[in-house]
Design a protein around this nucleic acid. Structure first.
Lengths: 200, 200, 200, 200
DNA sequence: CAGTAACCGAGACGGTACGTCGAGTCTTACA
DNA sequence: TGTAAGACTCGACGTACCGTCTCGGTTACTG
């Protein structure tokens, strides 16, 4: 155990105020107009305290967004209809439209991920892995009732779903019901014709 | 006509030097560590000259990357084997690995797209549309020979392919032959089981 | 000649605004509470512009004070009465009292001189030498009329006058008429008694 | 009596370690680059402990320097030759040269005195008064044997000696034997010529 | 073919934000 | 209860770039 260090202990209240202020700034201005000085002022915190917790702007963004927002939308319920479940989950993940807070935070996270490879690793571990786990469980359940093929490539499925939504959000296109329906349909039925290589 | 203005005409050499310096900087440092002053110095050009051509950093990046790099990889040849053609195209688009110049430029473009909605619009128009056109032609050819279903949702296909690769690149994962094979297989065969909703 | 450099030429107006703001700050707050950020704001100037002209805080202070203030008091008129001339000059140099602007600027210059040896060199060259020259002329005139011994050690005279006033100002004691009278009397008559070593 | 309080008593060892560390820092870096954090670390002491003893940086410097250094040189022995005694004392006070520890501490004290009027008061009380007392005794002795005039202005003598040496040290000039000889000669003989106002 | 208007490089300008240092205060665990 | 340790808010540092504005100087159309 190592909790018994001398000196004042770190203020969890400051940490939370920083994360909240960060999310507000991200939604309002986006990643690269983000200013740590404004965040510090808004959170009522010294700049040094931000640096004590987070080594860089991108690390702060990763932490602030991954914990405060994206993880909320990551549960994938089982209603018996796997297509409907996926559709619902995709639309919740993307948020209401290109101007929604969700969309702004996804764009900010993407920019942070693009900038910094440690953030990329964190994103991989905190989002992709979690989503994959949830999706794998849901697909397994679907296999039991014959809705899903037993050899479905889970990783490719996860990344194509997340990546596609990400692309829509980055290019500011709406993640509409029509688009999601097409995507799910594509996912389940494929585009293979009569002459395509047969299922193994 | 407006070419008959008095005064010195703009230097095409300067413009090209700027774009080249921009790409070098992007590959080396990424989007948000990009410095117009360094670009100007590297290109042997005054800062004002950059601003004469491009109104903002993101516009410069959009121009520099979209024309100089991404468009190179956008042709989609027809060898008769549509799966192989798509596989080849996807891997060429992503570049050799997460440290390749291609990957760095894709990340930079993603960050620029995330930041600036006019860049997003330009990306949509210059990449998505072009890819969609090329892919639509290839899919149509595939339909003729029975490799592709006649009702394949082209937009969803395009965006799921581009988005998936983008996601791999952003999270610094390799776009390996195995992954691409899984992705193409998913695309053609779907994951639907015996009890999934029948094809329309 | 080398005045024909490319680029915008430096703004003399900025330079003067900086010096004026510096003097105001020095009088109001003193040397080590001096803030370049406040000076820049008061002068309506970017911080970088200050650094472009002056390499350090102490250099700025030296320049600002030596040119803007101390040199004003350095002329030593000749009314025929050398004691009165010196008395008048000493009191003018010190300013009205320990709270006067002159006193504040002398204290600031002393602190800057104590901190930085290049400022010390500048002080030596810009104040000591000038004062010595003026005083030497006045003493020479005094010698002509028999008011001053021909072998008076000019350097020691200069530095003891300036140093004594400096000491009074640093310790916040008034440079009163009584004190100055004593000092001048000491200077002219010495403290030697009947048994002191005879004049050479 | 107050030694019988509960709790740990204040550590005299800490206080001395603080003063020693302060002197080391002053000699090495000068007054305004002085850092209480470095002093605390060097003394193996918490910052709060310093603040418990000294209310401000300048108070610490005053205490540290006035007690630890300057007072060492303040005794003014009587060998019978008052000129030699003064010469010796002046050179000891100034230290070996502009780079000596003594010179550095004198500069630091001057800066602290310039900054803070409570330090100025303390300096006045702890240095000037003591020196004046010692010098008055020596001069009185000199008067007895006819080496010094009976009406010598002691305050002016003290401050002109201390101030002159201070000026030499601030401007980084050596307090050489030649200079001191000139100064003492000036002090005893004055510069008055045959036509100067007669001694009162 | 001389003017002149728009370009060019260079670089200083007023600003904003950076990441670091230190001041002086507050809060722990320990002695 | 005093102390070393160290986190806290706050303010300033010196640097890097931003986007704009001037410089002296170079084209290349136009009258």
């Amino acid at each position: 155990m190592e909790t018994a260090r001398p000196g004042r202990s770190r203020s969890e209240a400051s940490r939370l105020a920083i994360l909240e202020a960060t999310r507000d700034e991200l939604v309002e201005r986006g990643y690269d107009k983000l200013s740590l000085e404004r965040i510090a002022a808004a959170a009522g915190v010294g700049k040094q305290t931000i640096y004590r917790w987070y080594p860089s702007k991108s690390a702060l963004v990763a932490e602030g967004v991954l914990h405060g927002h994206l993880m909320d939308h990551i549960d994938l319920p089982d209603t018996g209809d796997i297509r409907a479940d996926l559709t619902h989950w995709l639309m919740a993940f993307a948020g209401a439209g290109p101007e929604s807070d969700s969309a702004a935070l996804i764009r900010a996270t993407s920019a942070a991920t693009a900038e910094d490879e440690t953030v990329a690793a964190r994103y991989e571990e905190q989002v992709t892995v979690v989503v994959r786990t949830a999706l794998r469980a849901r697909l397994t359940a679907g296999m039991e009732v014959g809705q899903v093929r037993r050899d479905a490539p889970v990783t490719a499925v996860v990344e194509s779903l997340v990546g596609t939504v990400l692309f829509r959000v980055l290019t500011r296109q709406p993640v509409s019901a029509e688009f999601v329906a097409d995507l799910v349909s594509l996912l389940f039925s494929g585009i293979g014709g009569s002459d395509s290589t047969p299922r193994v």
